[in-house]
């Protein structure tokens, strides 16, 4: 599906430009898009190095295990396929907690680590396993308690009460997270049924 979307965006973009005379903008967009992506990756280096370093300390000192134990009741329900003591669980839980606290840039490295551990758990296959899809569902819905960036922008535009949207944001994000989990479960059982029919 990603392949289809990727090809769709590029081809329709170029074909549209043939008719409305925006070819110049398109040529520019190719290079500006590439440059933007590389800049983004370089920005990620500092964040990744720092957080993965800190996470490694927490893992070695056993802090992460304590943390995982605390959240075990929730984790086992969300990720029934991951053994409770598996290192993936520690990263998954730190990823979710970082998202909750609005620390988006700390959540990314932990999420990547979690996916890598889940890949090992899945025998190193290059296809997404069930817990990976659940974790992605949680991340794309981004359950947040404090939308820091939005509050900062509202402040910039002179809002009388920049934080008044915190309540509505929590409600909306809770809805999309619950929806994500339900849709994820639905797709999982659909796959499960299909596999059963074949075998």
């Amino acid at each position: 599906m990603v392949h289809a979307i990727w090809i769709f965006m590029l081809t329709t973009g170029i074909i549209t430009a043939m008719f409305n005379g925006r070819m110049e903008n398109v040529s520019e967009a190719i290079f500006s898009g590439a440059e933007e992506a590389v800049t983004l990756c370089f920005g990620l280096i500092s964040i990744m190095v720092f957080w993965l370093g800190i996470m490694n300390i927490a893992r070695k000192s056993g802090l992460m295990d304590i943390f995982t134990k605390l959240l075990r009741p929730v984790a086992v329900r969300l990720f029934p396929d991951v053994p409770a003591g598996h290192p993936a669980m520690g990263y998954i839980m730190s990823n979710i907690t970082a998202n909750l606290m609005g620390l988006g840039n700390a959540a990314t490295p932990m999420g990547i680590k979690a996916i890598k551990e889940l890949k090992k758990l899945n025998g190193g296959k290059d296809e997404a396993s069930r817990p990976m899809i659940t974790l992605m569902a949680l991340n794309t819905a981004s359950l947040t308690l404090i939308p820091t960036t939005v509050i900062a922008i509202r402040m910039n535009y002179g809002s009388a009460s920049p934080a008044e949207i915190v309540g509505t944001t929590i409600f909306a994000t809770a809805c999309s997270t619950i929806a994500a989990l339900c849709i994820d479960r639905y797709f999982y059982f659909r796959r499960f049924r299909k596999r059963k029919e074949y075998s």
Binding site: L10, I14, A17, N20, R22, V26, A29, G33, A34
Partner: peptide, 14 residues
């Protein structure tokens, strides 16, 4: 790859 596609898609008016 992704960001080039997105910026072409937006810049072209598609």
């Amino acid at each position: 790859g992704m960001m080039v596609a997105i910026s072409v898609f937006r810049a072209s008016g598609a």
